[in-house]
Amino acid sequence: MARSLASNALTILVVLMVAAGSIIGWGRSQYAGRGPLEDAICVVVPSGASMSKISRDLEEQGAISNGTIFRLGAEYSKRSNQLKAGSFVVEPHASMDEIIEAITASGRSTCGTEVNYRVGVAEANMVVRELDPGTQQYVELASYVPGEEPAPEGLDAIMENPSTRYRITLAEGVTSWQVIEELKRAPFLSGEVAEVPAEGSLAPDSYETPKGADLGELVAEMKSRQSAILADLWAARAEGLPLETPEEALTLASIVEKETGVADERPMVASVFVNRLKDGMRLQTDPTVIYGLTEGKAPLGRGIRQSELRKATPYNTYVIPGLPPTPIANPGRESIAAALNPADTDYLFFVADGSGGHAFASTLREHNENVRRWREIEAQQVAQ
C-alpha cells in the first residue's frame, strides 16, 4: 500500500514536472518566436506609461499573443522599468523580445507624427508629417511659413497630442542671425537668446527636441555639435594647409559652403581657395562681398554692383588679401572636411558651367574660355 502511494506520488510529481517544463517551453517559444502581427504598426509609449498598459495596447493591436508572457519577459530581462517615451515601429511578426527592445533601447522615436521646423537659406517653414510604419516613408500632412501664413487647420490638435514629436532642421549655409530670428517664431520652443552666436558656430543638423524646449539650451547644443565636428576634422587635417587655426578653417569652409551646392565639388572648390592662399592671390569670391553688405541678415536680392566690388570692406575678398575676419555662414560637416582635406589640384579658377556645377581651370586663359561658354549659356537661357 505504502509502495503504491509512493509510486503514484512519484508519477504525479514527474507529470507535474513535465507539465511545468512544457509550460516554460511554450512560454519561451511565445516570447522569442515569430509574433502574430501581419502589418507594421506604430506603438505610442506615453511619458510615465507602465509595461502593463503597453502590453494591453499591444494585445489589442494584435502585436503580441499573451500580455502576461510579455510582462514576465520584460521583468526577467530586467527591462520592465526601462520604457522610453516615444513612438516606435513594430515590424511584422516581431517577437515579444524584439518589441521590448524597440520600446526600451534608445528612446529615439521611429514613427508617428512629427512637426519639423526647417530653417533654410531662403526661408523657414514648418512641416507636419507622419511616418507610415508599413512603407517607412514620411507622408506630409501640412506645411506653412510661421509668421507669414496662417497655421493649417488641425495643427493645434496635433501639437496638443503628447505623442507628437518635434524637430528643428538647419540647412547648410544659413547664417547665425537667420537661425535665431527664425527660431523665435517656432511655436513649440520657449525662452530667449541674449545675443546672436558667432557666425559659423552652429552645426547645420537635425535636432529632435521636446515641446517647450528652451531656445538657449537648443542653441548651446548646436554650438556644442559644431565645436565637436571642427575639433574632430581639424585633428585629421591634411599637412601643409595655409590655415593656422580651426577658426580659419571654419571661415574657409563657410566660403566653400556658399560657393557650391554640389556635394562632390566641395573638395575641388576648397582646392581653388587653398591654392590661391598659398600663392598669395586674393580669393575674389562673391559670397564674402555679399556678407559684407548684408551682414548675413537677408539675401542681397540683386546682383553685386561694380562699385561694391571695388569698395574696401573687411569681407571684400576682391580687395583684401587672405580670408575675411569671420565665417560668412554656418558650414556643414562636409564643407569643413573639404576645407581641411581639399582635392589635390592646381586649379585657381572656377565659374558656373550651366549644369548647376562649375568648370575649373588652372590658367587664366582656360578660365576665360570657361567664362565665355558660361556667357553663351546665360544668353541662351535669357532668350528662352
Score class of each variant (00 low, 15 high):
residue 1 M to T: 13
residue 5 L to N: 15
residue 8 N to T: 10
residue 17 M to E: 15
residue 19 A to R: 01
residue 21 G to M: 05
residue 27 G to C: 14
residue 29 S to L: 12
residue 36 P to I: 00
residue 39 D to N: 12
residue 40 A to T: 03
residue 43 V to F: 07
residue 55 S to V: 09
residue 57 D to A: 12
residue 62 G to V: 05
residue 64 I to L: 09
residue 64 I to E: 03
residue 73 G to R: 11
residue 74 A to G: 14
residue 81 N to E: 15
residue 82 Q to D: 12
residue 84 K to R: 06
residue 84 K to G: 05
residue 86 G to M: 04
residue 93 H to N: 15
residue 93 H to E: 15
residue 99 I to S: 06
residue 121 V to S: 02
residue 125 N to S: 09
residue 126 M to A: 11
residue 131 L to W: 01
residue 136 Q to V: 08
residue 140 E to V: 13
residue 150 P to K: 07
residue 150 P to L: 01
residue 152 P to Q: 13
residue 154 G to P: 08
residue 155 L to H: 05
residue 158 I to D: 03
residue 158 I to M: 12
residue 166 Y to T: 01
residue 169 T to K: 05
residue 170 L to C: 08
residue 177 W to T: 07
residue 184 K to H: 13
residue 186 A to F: 11
residue 186 A to L: 05
residue 195 E to M: 08
residue 197 P to Y: 03
residue 203 A to T: 08
residue 212 G to W: 12
residue 216 G to I: 04
residue 216 G to A: 04
residue 218 L to M: 14
residue 227 S to E: 15
residue 227 S to M: 13
residue 236 A to D: 14
residue 238 A to W: 02
residue 245 T to L: 11
residue 253 A to S: 06
residue 259 E to C: 08
residue 269 V to M: 06
residue 271 S to Q: 10
residue 271 S to V: 08
residue 284 Q to M: 11
residue 285 T to I: 04
residue 290 I to L: 13
residue 291 Y to H: 04
residue 293 L to K: 14
residue 296 G to D: 11
residue 301 G to K: 07
residue 304 I to N: 10
residue 305 R to Y: 15
residue 306 Q to K: 13
residue 306 Q to C: 12
residue 309 L to W: 09
residue 310 R to A: 15
residue 314 P to Q: 11
residue 316 N to Y: 10
residue 328 I to C: 03
residue 333 R to G: 10
residue 339 A to F: 08
residue 340 L to D: 04
residue 342 P to W: 00
residue 344 D to L: 09
residue 356 G to A: 06
residue 356 G to I: 01
residue 357 G to P: 06
residue 367 H to C: 09
residue 378 E to N: 01
residue 380 Q to S: 08
